[in-house]
Amino acid sequence: MVLLQKKKVVIIQATPSGRKALITGMPFFNEFGEVEFVLSYSYEVAELLVIQEYMKELEYEMSLAKEELSLLRKENLIIEGLTIENRSTRVAFETARNAATLDVPVVLYGESGTGKSTMAKVIHNESTRKDGPYIEIDCETTPEAMFERELFGGEFEDKETGLLTLSRGGSLYLKGIDKLSLHLQGKLAKVLKERKYTPTNTETALPLETRLISSSESTLTEAVSEKTFHQDLYYMLHIVPIHLKPLRERKEDLSALITNYLNRYSTAYNTAKKLSDDLFKQLLLLQWDGNISELKNVMERLVVQSPSNIIIIKDLPPEYRKEISEDLSIIHLEGRTLPSILEDVEMKVLRDAQERYRTTTEIAKFLGISQPSVVRKLKKYTDIE
């Protein structure tokens, strides 16, 4: 066959003893392009199967090692009040941790309840100022006249009560800085530019020895272009911008937080509640406009109000109880073979399990199949996409 085809040939051949052998023939050509020699070698198929099984076991061991490494990395990133499962959250945290040691201003962006205050505390705790004070002021809820007094202090009260003074050697977190009036934005810009401030009704300037961290629900870049935010202040604050996505876009974080708050409130109220699979899926599909604050409220209500230890969809507060069409009903059947339909179902089940469980080992236990099977199936559907 090699002589006829003048190329490498691989076949499976039966031996006189009845065994199967994989035979490979390789041609070697002379200077005239003719086959001068043929090198042939063979393996018993049984030997190849043994090698294949060995490779599968090796692949399984490697996947376990990767999972353990991933878990160890996650354990190193555990912070009270901050869940780091989603890739965008991890990027935000690593950016914050890198910026913390540089002692530069940081602006945190995100909807209300996405964890900006927690991230501000992380930055302070990871910085060289961690042993100094950490003070937070809400720019939106503090009246303008009182804000100036709170920030700078002055002769009308104890000079040490100004927040810039009280936070000396530490960090001052300006929550909702986009809500600050342009007048106060200008004053703050001057302080940052000169690196000193003068308490109200006094003449003695004090050095600025505070690290400023600020947050905003809206993009400051747009506010500058709309002339609702002081341009100089923007350039001085916007050194390291960090964006925190809403909870509805962080399914991995949401899944972990649901379990975390379920366990927390079950312990707090001396009970042992569990979520039905349908309810867990429902919670993952909700919008969570109030983000973590809203999720905490709903989880506490579920634990307190559910009559049985298994919490079901009917236990949801009325405003959250929505009918969801069964996903399987949208699978198109016409003109398709059963294996093709089953592949769609399998892919959906695996994705649902992937949203709920962190590792392929947990997914395998939940689905009642082996961990290598989970790895292969996930890789299969990832490759399809």
Rank of each mutant, 00 (worst) to 15 (best):
G368T: 09
M347D: 07
V375H: 02
V375P: 00
K379Y: 02
K365I: 12
D352R: 12
S340D: 12
Y320R: 07
P339K: 10
Q371T: 15
L342I: 06
L333M: 06
G368C: 12
D327T: 06
E319V: 05
E355V: 01
D344E: 15
Y357M: 05
S329R: 02
E355M: 06
V375G: 01
G335N: 12
I331G: 10
R358G: 00
A353C: 13
K380W: 07
K379H: 08
K322H: 13
E343S: 13
I331K: 06
A364N: 10
L342G: 05
E323Y: 08
S373D: 15
K379A: 15
T360I: 02
D352V: 02
S329T: 04
T359Q: 11
P317V: 11
K348C: 04
K377W: 00
P372I: 06
L328H: 02
I369G: 12
P339A: 15
E343M: 06
P372R: 11
A364R: 06
A353E: 04
I369D: 10
K365H: 15
A353L: 09
V375R: 01
P372M: 14
R321V: 01
D344S: 14
E319N: 13
I341E: 03
R321N: 13
T361N: 13
V374P: 00
P317D: 14
R358H: 04
P339F: 05
S373N: 14
P318Y: 03
R336F: 04
G368Y: 05
I369Y: 01
E362V: 01
Q354F: 00
R321C: 08
F366G: 01
E326S: 11
M347R: 11
E319D: 14
R358S: 10
M347S: 11
P318T: 03
R351C: 09
L338H: 09
T361I: 08
L328C: 03
E343T: 02
G335T: 02
P317E: 10
L342C: 10
L338S: 09
S340K: 13
T360G: 08
E343A: 14
V349Y: 00
L342E: 14
Y357E: 04
L338T: 10
S370M: 07
I324D: 02
M347T: 02
R356E: 07
G335S: 09
M347F: 04
P339E: 14
Q354I: 00
D327G: 15
L367R: 11
S370C: 10
A353V: 03
R351V: 05
T360Y: 01
R321L: 14
F366M: 12
I341N: 06
E326M: 08
E343R: 06
L328I: 07
P318F: 00
R376S: 15
R376F: 06
S329W: 00
R376Y: 08
P317H: 11
H332K: 12
A353F: 01
D344H: 04
K380H: 14
V345A: 13
I369T: 10
D352A: 12
Y357N: 06
R351T: 09
S373C: 13
M347C: 11
I330D: 01
Q371L: 08
V349K: 07
K322D: 05
P318W: 00
Q371A: 15
